[in-house]
Amino acid sequence: MTQGLEMRAVSKYYDAGSERITALDRVSFKVEPGEFVAVVGPSGSGKTTFLSIAGALLRPSEGEVLLNGKDISKLPDKELADIRLREIGFILQASNLVPYLNVMEQLLLVKRMAGKITEADKTFAARLLEELGLSGRVKNYPEELSGGERQRVAIARALMNDPSVILADEPTASLDTRRAHEVAALIAHVVKSHHKAAVMVTHDERLLSYCDKVYRMEDGRLSPAEPVPVA
């Protein structure tokens, strides 16, 4: 059984009026545990579509999506939600935290959605927050955190369900350069320390040095990019 995430000849079409837009064109791709992959590309090239399909938010028009060897490309909505809850960790753009929950509760919410919160969950959450340097902010609310801290909470939340794969959609979009580097470095760190497969979509080419592999998306087609020079 293959671990991690694999896509086989995945295509996605959108019907816009009479036209048919090909957002993804026969994309094949693979990421293994412990591997941090970046996807770059111009606006409208299909990056978000790619990530949505990888993250069980969207079903492909054609092709297979294998998560830990299991094809999830044809599952009904309810089961997709379950896959997202148990197998996938999302790090979204800024302000993707629930405004009325404090940092600890943001993490526990994930467990709450799946059932009851146990003592072990609380210990695990506390350990994650410590690992991400948030021990002092456990009781704070999102509005009291800096943009960088919020993204660190989002990283911790993405790890909370012990997912098979971590997906990040422009996680540094609203951060300044220093913070953006910090966040990218932290994702790279947890990918190694927790041995997770991770995919990050980004515009920011300076962050690619944190990644093991880089793919380029262009007009819905994914291709390996030249290895980036280390900054």
Binding site: G55, L57, K78, A81, D82, I83, R84, L85, R86, I88, F90, L92, N96, L97, V98, P99, L109, V110, M113, A114, R157, N161
Partner: peptide
């Protein structure tokens, strides 16, 4: 918006 985020991280409609 919040509901969208929570659904993205796996919340069911029922929850």
């Amino acid at each position: 918006n919040q509901f969208g985020i929570m659904k993205a991280i796996g919340a069911r409609n029922g929850f």
